[in-house]
Design a binder for these strands. Structure first.
Length: 179
DNA sequence: TTAGTGATATCC
DNA sequence: GATATCACTAAA
């Protein structure tokens, strides 16, 4: 068959978050556990964050130790603990020095940012790592689907203008004949 | 609707 | 040092 499992490299993530976020939908997220076990789930929902004008982005209020990663090179894994309970998974995109990234919001069978990381066993231990390390990778298995844009959620503190942006991308109709 | 949970940022 | 806030989820 023509479908090859292609691991996405850093150059994929070096583009703008608004290009990367929709393209990540439908890809496979693969986590290699320390135990040797391998978990993989298909990404169904992402959100783009970043840019100087985005008041919803963590980095908007200034460069701090926590947001430092957002300014770093693409392909870096940014895991952040939210509400003391949930790990949220992001991947840094764009050029170094430009604070931006993509939040992986949901996977097949794990709807919601907190559930996703729980299902894949992702914790702060991965924070600051790189996709090229091979622990956590994104794979294109050839699956194609419709992309449905929507407003971002959970960012009530951002400006109305930023809340209205259609920077959330969900999986739509499956366009592949096989999965 | 609200409780739970802990890191981070901001204020004294 | 203290408080407020948060890109969430589950339970009621």
């Amino acid at each position: 068959m023509g479908s090859e499992n292609k691991k996405l490299n850093d150059s994929f993530f070096q583009r703008d978050r608004l290009v990367v976020a929709p393209e990540l939908v439908g890809k496979l997220l693969v986590h290699q556990l320390p135990s040797g076990e391998r978990l993989s789930l298909r990404i169904t929902e992402t959100e783009a964050y970043g840019g100087a004008e985005d008041t919803a982005c963590h980095a908007h209020r200034g460069r701090t130790p926590r947001t430092e990663l957002l300014y770093g090179p693409a392909g870096v894994i940014y895991v952040y603990l939210c509400y003391g309970i949930h790990w949220l998974l992001n991947i840094i995109t764009g050029e170094e020095g430009s604070p931006q990234g993509v939040l992986i919001r949901a996977c097949e069978g794990a709807e919601g940012p907190g559930r996703l990381t729980k299902a894949l066993g992702i914790t702060g231990a991965l924070n600051g790592g790189r996709l090229s390390d091979g622990i956590l990778t994104v794979v294109d298995d050839g699956m194609r689907c419709e992309i449905v844009p929507d407003r971002r959620v959970g960012i009530g503190y951002a400006s109305e203008e930023d809340q209205a942006r259609l920077w959330r991308f969900k999986m739509g109709k499956n366009l592949s004949s096989v999965e």
